[in-house]
Simulated scan of single mutants.
Amino acid sequence: MTMTAPEPPRPASVWEVIPLTHNSWRICDAALMEADASRLVAYIDRNESGHFDVLWLRSPCPTRSRYRSMDELLAELDAAQTADTPSRSTRPTHIPHFPPTH
């Protein structure tokens, strides 16, 4: 009989919002080390109408790129993160293999 330990829960919000200018920020994954390039998640700019435009830099990320508030943006990022985290006990996605064509 094989037993596996459950996945440790990820904190509700591990996002670090770092101001760059008065109207721009970057989002980093605080769970990763400073030297890890995948720590950078997105760049955010507030446009003239007050909306937040996002440039996503890694997956998983929400499908939208414009938000009314920073809270809305972070809530969708949390949802995308939890929805994309597969269990370690699931089988990997099967990749079909085809014979070479002549």
Results as ranks from 00 to 15, higher is better:
R26N: 05
A30K: 14
P9K: 07
V54W: 06
D29Q: 02
V54N: 06
R46C: 10
V41L: 14
D29M: 02
S24P: 06
L74G: 03
T101V: 14
T63Y: 06
Y67K: 10
V41W: 01
P9Q: 07
H22P: 00
S87Q: 11
D36H: 14
D29L: 01
D29H: 02
S87K: 05
Y43E: 08
Y67S: 08
G50R: 04
L73S: 05
T101N: 11
R64G: 10
W25P: 03
E72M: 12
I27K: 00
L20S: 06
E16L: 15
S65V: 10
L32W: 03
S38R: 15
S24F: 05
T4C: 02
W25Y: 13
L57F: 03
E76V: 01
R64L: 11
A75C: 01
H22Y: 08
S69Y: 07
A5H: 04
S65H: 15
E16K: 12
P11R: 11
L73E: 07
H94N: 10
P8K: 11
L74C: 05
E34I: 07
T93F: 12
D84Q: 09
M70H: 03
H22I: 08
G50V: 06
F98H: 13
D45S: 08
R58H: 01
F52N: 01
R10F: 00
A83P: 04
A35W: 09
T82W: 08
C61D: 00
A30F: 05
A79Q: 15
W25L: 06
R46E: 13
P6F: 02
P8T: 09
T101E: 13
L55K: 10
H94A: 13
R66C: 13
S24Q: 11
A79Y: 10
T85A: 13
R26E: 15
L73M: 15
A37N: 09
V41A: 10
H51D: 08
M70F: 03
